[in-house]
Computed example of a mutant assay.
Amino acid sequence: MVVSAGKARSRRTSVAIASALGLTAAIGLGAEAGSAATVPTPAHVVVVVLENHAYSQVIGSSSAPYINSLATGGANLTQFYAETHPSQPNYYAMFSGSTQGITDDSCVKIGFSSAANLGSELIAAGKTWASYNEGLPSQGSTVCSNSSNKYAQKHNPWFGFGNVPTSTAYTFAQFPTDYTKLPKVSFVVPNLCNDMHDCSVSTGDTWLKNKLGAYATWAKSNNSLLVVTFDEDNKLAGNRIAAVVYGQPVKAGSSSSTTYNHYSLLRTLEDMAGLTTHAGNAASASDITGIWS
């Protein structure tokens, strides 16, 4: 449910007054609800995950003009970190609040875990969820890889959870052109070239502009968000990675030097969707704040 600006301001004012008077419990706000009140309620959020580059390889780089334009016109999280190496555990961390015991990039058993995750939480709450996976042979396909179009299941953690229907995994060709038809929250995972894993920063940046630039423009005037981040760094920068947030709810030109990680992102996505549950380490993570208009 999207709350009107007037109602949101009224609620924030009520929270501030109640907090000052020590009346938080009296108005039915627990600690988690109070945290959720600090983030917006966008109609749609699209998260794009790119690969294996440190913050300094992307932000300020002439090879990534589009991502930097998003940072300038939106918000730049300057101290955002991944959890580990290699790739796959980080994807599970940002989707479920835990690496789920995964330590490598091996293809996992489909539905091996029943742990809570962003997809299962959204579905349980009656909200919409989807992933859009470039190179996926067909909707719901559970293949480990497809070398002809550089698809890799290791970057798609939703397949590891039995409580997330495989049918919610779409090909990228199925990404809606009518953005009002997007789910509440969705992830976009480019193939191994366009995510910068096998190809250059410039290749990934150009792909992002060409494939999601129109959505970013639309999001700016339709209460929606585009989040662009990475799975891990190049193993040379302490796992500090780029994370950029763009859209109408974002204060243009803002930045935050607060230390955040994938668990913080997951917590924020959960709270923006109005969920009352938090998966794994997201339960103790802080919302991303200080960048909202």
Score class of each variant (00 low, 15 high):
Ser141Met: 06
Thr84Cys: 13
Gly6Val: 14
Leu208Val: 09
Leu266Phe: 07
Lys154Asp: 13
Ala5Val: 12
Gly253Ile: 03
Ser224Asn: 10
Trp292Thr: 02
Tyr81Asn: 09
Glu270Val: 00
Gln88Trp: 09
Ser200Cys: 10
Asp195Tyr: 02
Arg240Gly: 04
Ser56Gly: 08
Ala125Ser: 12
Val250Tyr: 00
Ala93Phe: 06
Ala33Phe: 01
Leu29Ala: 10
Gly30Val: 05
Gln88Ile: 07
Arg11Asp: 15
Asp233Ser: 09
Thr128Phe: 06
Asp178Ala: 11
Ser56Phe: 07
Ser106His: 14
Ser10His: 12
Phe187Met: 15
Phe95Ser: 05
Val39Cys: 10
Leu77Cys: 03
Gly34Pro: 00
Phe95Asp: 10
Val227Ser: 05
Ser14Asp: 08
Ser167Asn: 06
Ser19Val: 03
Tyr260Asp: 12
Val46His: 02
Trp218Asn: 15
Thr99Trp: 00
Asn222Leu: 12
Tyr246Gln: 08
Leu50Trp: 04
Gly22Val: 03
Ala130Thr: 01
Gly162Asn: 09
Thr166Trp: 11
Ser224Arg: 01
Ile291Phe: 13
Gln100Asn: 03
Leu29Gly: 13
Thr289Pro: 11
Ser286Met: 07
Ala243Met: 13
Leu50Asp: 06
Ala31His: 02
Gly162Leu: 08
Ala93Met: 11
Gly126Asn: 11
Glu134Thr: 01
Leu136Arg: 00
Trp158Leu: 14
Ala16Val: 00
Phe159Tyr: 13
Gly74Glu: 15
His262Thr: 03
Asn163Phe: 04
Leu21Arg: 14
Ser61Tyr: 05
Ser200Asp: 11
Gly280Met: 12
Ala82Ile: 00
Ser98Asp: 13
Ala54Gln: 09
Tyr215Ile: 12
Ala37Arg: 05
Gly213Trp: 01
Ser145Ala: 14
Tyr91Gln: 11
Asn76Val: 02
Ser98Ala: 04
Ser293His: 12
Ala33Met: 06
Ser4Tyr: 04
Pro89Thr: 00
Ser35Met: 12
Asn210Val: 05
Val58Glu: 06
Val143Trp: 04
Ala283Ser: 07
Thr78Gly: 15
Val46Met: 05
Glu83Ser: 12
Ser284Lys: 08
Pro183Arg: 04
Lys251Ser: 15
Ser148Thr: 15
Gly30His: 07
Ala43Met: 11
